[in-house]
Design a protein around this nucleic acid. Structure first.
Length: 269
DNA sequence: ACGTGATCCTGGAAGC
DNA sequence: TGCTTCCAGGATCACG
């Protein structure tokens, strides 16, 4: 699924079409997503969209009385299309706007979600989230302190949303390569200095991926339908057996926490 | 508190 | 060509 950069690219793409628009109707074709789409979503009709925010990989459409919370799961896509456009397979939800367009949510695997967060409430999914990686709240000190005593592999550690949000499999691999850290290394046995490097690389890789419109591996699209262009910048992800770009070595792959993991055993220790 | 593994669902690719 | 198996960018839950 989209990781933080892809969600942010989606937000930037849809936001200009949404903000200031009134929601004329909500069309649910398939309520069975990761969680059922709540009936309260209908209450959105008649309200005006104030802003579109992002927290972790969740998009928050603020309509004053509540926020419509969207998660793209692994295969979710958002497009802004004419409301009259014939829906295709897996077009589960439309938020129809006064402009005559609609925000259309398509999600083949249905790991995505649409939730309703009333003003002043915080959904369980949005509680206990770690800091945003692209803010000053995300520091080496944070990673260092939280990791003391932890035996979990550093890759699993930085993919844990309680630690820091938005770092998924692709960018975890890439950031660890850039920081020269072996993804299998116990999180609690990494020095403060190395966490400084890792923190910087996480920020850099995420910011750079956003600039490139995200990473399209198979099917991620920006809200205008174009792919992301970060794929060509991937140094290790998906490159098992290929030459490392930094040394004479070969990229290896192992499974960590049930996720495919790529690294250069010579560059990463 | 921590670490591991199963699980939700579909489609595309790879293997036979 | 057609059938089967495997794999995928996420996140929660149950269990030891």
């Amino acid at each position: 699924m989209p990781e933080l950069p892809e969600v942010e690219v989606s937000r930037l793409g849809i936001s200009p079409h949404l903000v200031g628009q009134t929601i004329s109707s909500v069309v649910v074709r398939q309520p069975k997503l990761r969680w059922p789409i709540p009936d309260e979503l209908k209450l959105a009709e008649g309200y005006t969209i104030k802003a579109v925010h992002r927290r972790a990989k969740y998009l928050l459409i603020d309509i004053g009385i509540a926020q419509i919370v969207l998660h793209l799961g692994m295969s979710g896509k958002l497009r802004v299309v004419p409301a009259t456009l014939e829906p295709i397979k897996h077009d589960h939800l439309d938020i129809v706007l006064s402009s005559g367009k609609c925000l259309r949510f398509n999600d083949a695997r249905r790991f995505g979600a649409c939730l309703w967060q009333p003003q002043g409430e915080v959904l369980p999914q949005l509680q206990n989230l770690g800091p945003e990686p692209l803010t000053e709240a995300f520091t080496a000190q944070h990673l260092y302190t939280l990791s003391r005593g932890r035996k979990t592999p550093v890759k699993s550690f930085i993919m844990d949303n309680d630690v820091v949000v938005g770092v998924g499999n692709i960018y975890a691999n890439e950031a660890l390569f850039m920081a020269n850290i072996d993804p299998r290394r116990a999180a609690g046995r990494i020095s403060f200095q190395r966490y400084q490097k890792l923190t910087k690389e996480i920020k850099d890789v995420l910011a750079s991926a956003i600039q490139q419109g995200g990473t399209t591996l198979k099917d991620f699209i920006q809200s205008d339908g174009s792919p992301g262009y970060f794929r060509q910048h991937l140094r290790v992800y998906g490159r098992a057996g290929k030459a490392c770009e930094q040394c004479e070595g070969t990229i290896n792959s192992v499974v960590i926490g049930q996720r495919n993991t790529f690294f250069c055993p010579r560059c990463q220790r």
